[in-house]
Structure formats: C-alpha cells, structure tokens
Design a protein around this nucleic acid. Structure first.
Lengths: 162, 162
DNA sequence: CAAATTAAGGATATATGTTATCCGAAAATC
DNA sequence: GATTTTCGGATAACATATATCCTTAATTTG
C-alpha cells in the first residue's frame, strides 16, 4: 500500500502556491525546476488539483496555477484525494459469499465485519489528514526552514510568477 | 493506495483458524475451498503469516496451519503487516533538497514537515488496526453470522482439520 | 496581427507491483 | 513406499505508476 509520488509533489507545490501574492500565477515549469521534478509528469499532478477545484489556472505567458481558496480552507486530505482518488484503501470482495455452507440466495444484512474494521482504520487516516490545513503546513515550514532559504525561495518564485 | 487482496484473505483465514480446536491444523486446500480462492496464491499469503510467526505449520497429511498465539494476542495490524509489509504508505523523497536556493551541502535537522503529517496519518491508521484483536472479530462474527451458517461452517472445517 | 508561452488532454513507452500458476524439495502421515 | 502437506523458486499475465511526446486552444507579449 504505497501512495504515488505525485502526492508528495502536489503537497509541496501547494505549500509554494500558498505563499504566492494575491492574483499571481506560477507555471508548471517553475514548480518543476524548484523541486527538481519532471515537468511533463508533474503537470499531470497539477491537472488533478485543477480538476478537484483546488487551484485556478490561466493560459499564456505569465499563466500557471494559483490556489482557488485560502490556505486555511484547504487541508491535506483535499490534496491527497485530488491526486490519489477517494477510493478506500481496503476493498471488500465479499469472499464470505463463497462459503459452501451458506444457503443459496442468502443475503447479508451488514457489510462484512472484516471490512468494517479496515474501513474504520481508513477513516482514522483520512480524519488525521483532514485535520491539518495547508496554512498549518506553511506555518511549520516558515518556522523550521532557515529564514535565508525561505526568503530566497520566494524571491526566486516571484521572479517567475506571472 | 490500495491494499492487496491477500490482506482480506489472511484476515478471513485467521478468523477461521481462531475457531479451530486446540492442537488441530487446517490446510491451504480447505481454506481455499471455504473462501473460494486460488489455492496456490492463497498459499503465499499463509506463508507470510508463517514467516511473521502468527501461525504454526506442520507437514504431511493432516498438516496445515493453526494460530501460534491466542486470538486475543493477535491484532489486525499483526496480520495486515505480515502480508503487506511494515513500510509506511508515504515515502519522502526529500524533494526540498532539490531547491536551487539551498546552500550547497546544507543539512536538514528534522524530517520534512510534509512527511511528518503523512506519517502521523499512517500511524493513526496503524493504531486503529492495532486496537482490534482477532478475538474481537470472532466475537462480532459469532453474533452477526446466523447460528446455522456459523455452526455449519465449523462442522465443515472440522471434517477437514487434521 | 504574429510569435511565444501556457494548461489540458491524448497517445505511447517503460518500470514496477499484483495476481496467479507451476514445479521441485523436504517433511510428515499412513 | 505412496500420499499429502508446507515452502520456496521460477515464470507469466495483467494492472498501475512513472515518464515522455505531441496536438490543441487560450492568452500574453511584441
């Protein structure tokens, strides 16, 4: 059970977009350069964010991406689900139905007890992600990343933001 | 991020083994028939349980698998990790190191803030699984599965247990 | 208006992982 | 000695993840 690397990419890109001044856009090219990622493939992750309405886009030179909402209104789960999908990590194939001792046509009233536990764990995972906002991440980063790197990065970004 | 179907299989098999009388073994063949699963491939899942010391095995006719510990001493996480591995679902590739604004040779004091959140969610998932014991599952099943199916199944099993 | 730049999306290729099957070896039972 | 079992290795089919390339349409810049 492994998340796509695109999840990591999308989270880091959103952290950068969160620090972008109002009304400005940052291109795939700049985001790819900043993180050392393959531009064309990173583009797919950003398209996922766009389809999930987490970011706005605009075309042409000076075009690119910006957050569609305030960083305090976007949480980790939003971003993870945009890239990874909303499907649960455990899928129940109802193998209890294959039990040769079951009467033909018997119908279960509840979902399988095994699946219920696995889904509960899945929900705990999602709730943890939902509880952390993008603004929290930015707060942590601005505290932990040395000031010169932090400021230098956004200076670098602003030179490339349309 | 999707768990292998072997996780589902292993959990259901353990639930059956939990109901096996002291000292008796159940074969891959019987477990595969009971759940309608490919015998050879199910065997791999059971081998994982064996390598994790969750089950004991014995060879020859009347051989097979039994739990190595009491059902109250085995939890969901034990079984899931035996099949799926203990690796975290999110792997941090440290893309912050690719930031062109970082001074050469700069070393981070803490793991990436993005990774820490993802790992926290992973731990919440694991803690939920750890909190549910195999004995809890058996308790739920014995309440919810109609008595005739429940008893019929273990009668079927006992005819095949060595 | 023309040229350059951008996001979006389709097509394709490669690598990796999951799902499965088959076989041989060693051990236990009968 | 014949049968049954677990265990491990080898292999193949299939799905998914990763990555690249190309076309199209929209937008900005000159």
């Amino acid at each position: 059970m492994i998340l796509k690397s695109q999840v990591e990419w999308a989270l880091h890109c959103c952290a950068i977009l969160a620090g972008l001044p109002e009304g400005r856009y940052l291109s795939t090219k700049a985001l790819a350069e900043l993180h050392g990622l393959p531009k064309e493939y990173l583009s797919k992750a950003l398209q996922s964010l766009s389809q999930a309405s987490l970011v706005d886009t605009t075309l042409g030179p000076s075009g690119g991406y910006r957050l569609a909402r305030s960083p305090s209104e976007i949480n980790f789960l939003d971003i993870v689900e945009a890239v990874e999908g909303k499907a649960r990590s455990f899928t129940c194939t109802n193998i209890r139905e294959n039990n040769p001792c079951r009467p033909a046509g018997y119908c279960d009233s509840k979902p399988c007890a095994v699946a219920r536990v696995m889904w509960e764990a899945d929900e705990a995972w999602r709730n943890t992600l939902k509880a952390v906002r993008l603004s929290d991440l930015v707060g942590t980063l601005s505290e932990e990343v040395p000031a010169d790197i932090w400021q230098g990065t956004f200076q670098w970004v602003l030179q490339r933001a349309g």
